[in-house]
Every structure is written in C-alpha cells, then in structure tokens.
Design a protein around this nucleic acid. Structure first.
Length: 111
DNA sequence: AGAGCACTGATCC
DNA sequence: GGATCAGTGCTCT
C-alpha cells in the first residue's frame, strides 16, 4: 500500500494499479471491481490527480472497450497522444485512440 | 452543499 | 446506432 494516500478509496486504486505489469493494461472497470467498488468515475478522478505519478502508471489504465479514455484531465489533445506514446514504448499498440489486441493486453487485477 | 468528472451499463429515441 | 439516465466516490466551486 502506498503511504500518505489522499483517501482510502484512491489508495486501493493505486495499490491495485501497481500490480499491473509493464506491457499490459487494465480498465477502470476492473480496477473499480478489484477494490470492491463500482465508482468507475471515482477511479478516473483519483488517477487524474495521480499524486504518485511514477509509481502509479495512470497511462496503463484504459476504458472497458479498449479506448484510451483520457489522460491528465483531458480526453483528447496532446496529453492523449503522449499517453499513447508511453503505451507504445511498453509494447502496446494503439491505433485511432484504441488499443490493438486489447483483450490480449488487458490483465486481471489480483488482490 | 451542489455540480462535474479520465466510466459503465441500461434505457430511450 | 447514437443520446440520455442512473449509480458511484471524490474534487472543485
């Protein structure tokens, strides 16, 4: 668990996200469910704050249908392009804002 | 206290 | 097939 978390909820989100290996991604839905919650939006917001930027790779979280979703508070723009680049650096192929072979890149979060 | 958000599933048109 | 609503937890005003 990460120290000094803003909230218990966010703390669980970060903790779960840290378990995602490099080259893989997860979804807001899986994250939320893995922490026993349905607050998908809250997960997104918690990541948007991202107080633990390097430890918590928020770019590794995507929407349930494989779309990038958003990054750094915006759903489109330079930040998104950067997020895609980051993912590609980890071996994830992104095309037209969506993850290619998304099902193979997604990893189930384990507690 | 009220509205909005990086979501999602279900309903409505 | 696209638009809207409800549910959820947190942040901002």
């Amino acid at each position: 668990m990460i120290n000094n978390m803003p909230t218990h909820f966010a703390g669980k989100v970060y903790s779960a996200l840290r378990k995602v290996p490099k080259g893989k991604v997860t979804t807001y839905k899986k994250l939320a469910e893995s922490i026993n919650s349905k607050a998908y939006r809250a997960v997104g917001h918690a990541l948007s704050q991202n107080p633990y930027a390097p430890a918590v790779p928020c770019h590794r979280v995507v929407a349930s249908d494989g779309t990038i979703g958003g990054f750094m508070g915006q759903k489109t723009g330079e930040a998104i392009r950067k997020k895609i680049k980051l993912l590609e650096s980890e071996g994830i192929v992104v095309e037209n804002g969506k993850i290619v072979d998304f099902e193979k890149k997604v990893v189930e979060i384990k507690n």
